[in-house]
Design a protein around this nucleic acid. Structure first.
Lengths: 347, 347
DNA sequence: CTGTTAGCGCCTTCAG
DNA sequence: CTGAAGGCGCTAACAG
């Protein structure tokens, strides 16, 4: 005996929602087969005008909502894109995610969000369950994955975009910029301007570390060996900036230029500098990181590396959609979204 | 003839991922029925130790990933929670969403994110397709819904939490605070301190408007009729704050106190005030809104209404999880997360 | 253009 | 504690 004695169809307009309607109910009401009803909804061009009208009318009248779980299972197309990222409570990531979603939503996809919390292990667990939803695409933020994760991803065969980072061994498509290049560019830019006394305040985040390391080694190449680094625990906050600068100043001679791993931290640094009576940028130049071009406008003395997180999101979405539309598309794609040093200090 | 000639099972370890494995493959390898394999994964306590071990071993060896689409369809439990919100590119919402997701992820749920962009129509469209995924729960941000949306929601019978707003006609559960109460409290607090010349700079967002309206009418009750209001287009940005204050000042006599619809706007206002030579808070007091307690620390002169978006998210998650665990739970629940006026001005 | 048939991969139900 | 049968709601593949 079946679960529900083969649920009587044709209950028609009795108690809307009492038991969710199925395509069969709609088809019955419209006097066609379920297949035709299905086509009317998904490939309307294959159905004659009058039939289609009848069906759509029935759908409307009954308030039918297609069950996408069933549809996805049958067609092996989930129209779902998973987005894994460390945290959404960070304006840069949030901006990127927003842009990705805007692109996807317009194309009829939904976004499944997975917060990994900067932990590869968590990422791995999350990845496994999320793969169970059979997403049509995956967006990964950052490229630190466990070996197991990489393997899973590889034989899941799902189109994939790595965002924010440009790494050496891409898994599939990449949209981002090189954090190493940022560090090097900063070193060259400011040494060329005559700065010698650098310091770094960075959140304890892999990308920040990479920029910091590249900066330090490029500075070394310029004969600058001593670069105090202050690592602050996550999350990157105003307070972290204040404390970071305090710690730095306590260490000895004040630096002439502080490179921060985010604009948020930079703003804290500026606040602390102000309360310590350090003139910015005359006595202390501050460099932030992010796309808060507004911050630079509000605080004209703040220099910053600008990366346009929104545009990055747009690119991620279009890369993915390209592949989804045409599976042979975008293989090996690497988009370098670059960065710009917005220099507001006056020497 | 079936789609794929009844895919030969027992292909065992051939080409991992060539064709995704099914429970049947695992069961075969472990020498049990699919049913037992299913139980071993979902209700392990119903399976004997040795059998379970054999099965889990097979799962691991083959790299099997359960198809949650199929599982959800069969069990009518999707373990999916949809979160609809205007935008994620706003630190307050992002913080709330992050907290919601943390709560849900730990309980084994996934988050489906739907950006409505402050548009009820978009919300409605999105809602219909998202309901098609048969989420086990829905979180709505804000309570502006079209009649059609409310109807859909009602007979979808999905547990629902409205966050951020406390409205008169709740659809189901609510977690938030009263924006009207904020407006009234601000009016009382600052009139009591002797302020008379108020002004408002608000983003063009329904919640901001509600606070503003309540503020104005409470001020009127205190005999203050003239309250200049500057409405800025979304998104709420630093720039909006700067422009807002400029516009306000251009209008005539400078206000003594500016109430802003967000901390971001408030920071812009402060920047503009500084560049105009207005001392804060001596000449111009600025009140922000949000949970950027850090901002108040970095800028000691900024007053703000603090709402703790993170805690709100936690409450949303627990309300939802309560209902999901026990369907009779939390009916009619209303959690007022309140707010605090953090007053940093010195009169 | 429309209908029929046979599953998609899993879980509920009921027997052992 | 384990297994067999059937169906969740939809769509691919063919036939008319």
């Amino acid at each position: 005996m079946p679960r529900k004695s083969k649920r009587e169809l044709a209950t028609l307009a009795t108690m809307p929602g009492a038991m969710p309607l199925t395509l069969a109910d709609v088809a019955l009401r419209a006097g066609v087969s379920t297949m035709t009803a299905s086509r009317a909804l998904n490939r309307p061009e294959l159905v004659s005008q009058p039939t289609r009208d009848k069906i759509l009318e029935a759908v409307r009248a009954m308030g039918y909502v297609p069950n996408l779980l069933a549809g996805s299972l049958a067609s092996s197309k989930s129209r779902l894109v998973a987005i894994l990222l460390p945290t959404i409570a960070h304006s840069l990531f949030a901006t990127t995610v927003q842009a990705i979603m805007d692109g996807l939503t317009d194309a009829g996809y939904h976004a499944l969000l997975g917060p990994t919390g900067y932990s590869p292990e968590k990422e791995q667990t999350l990845l496994e369950t999320i793969l169970g939803r059979r997403p049509d695409g995956i967006v990964l933020t950052g490229s630190l994955h466990t070996a197991a994760s990489r393997a899973r991803l590889a034989n899941a065969g799902v189109p994939l975009v790595e965002a924010w980072d440009l790494s050496d061994r891409p898994l599939d498509m990449q949209v981002g910029f090189s954090h190493e290049a940022v560090g090097v560019a900063l070193a060259r830019h400011y040494t060329a301007k005559g700065y010698r006394d650098f310091a770094v305040i960075t959140a304890d985040d892999p990308r920040g570390h990479r920029r910091c390391k590249a900066l330090a080694s490029e500075l070394a190449a310029h004969g600058i060996a001593r670069v105090p680094v202050q690592v602050m625990p996550l999350p990157a906050s105003w307070q972290a900036g204040r404390q970071g600068l305090r710690a730095l100043l306590a260490q000895g001679v004040p630096p002439r230029l502080v490179v921060c791993s985010s604009d948020t931290i930079a703003l804290g640094v500026m606040a602390e500098a102000a309360s310590q009576g350090l003139a910015i940028p005359r006595q202390l130049a501050v460099v932030g990181f992010g796309d808060l071009s507004e911050a630079s406008q509000a605080y004209p003395s703040l220099s910053s590396v600008s990366v346009n997180a929104a545009q990055m999101g747009t690119q991620v979405a279009s890369a993915l959609l390209g592949r989804l539309r045409e599976p042979s598309c975008n293989w090996g794609l690497v988009v370098d979204t670059g960065f710009v040093i917005r220099d507001r200090e006056s020497t």
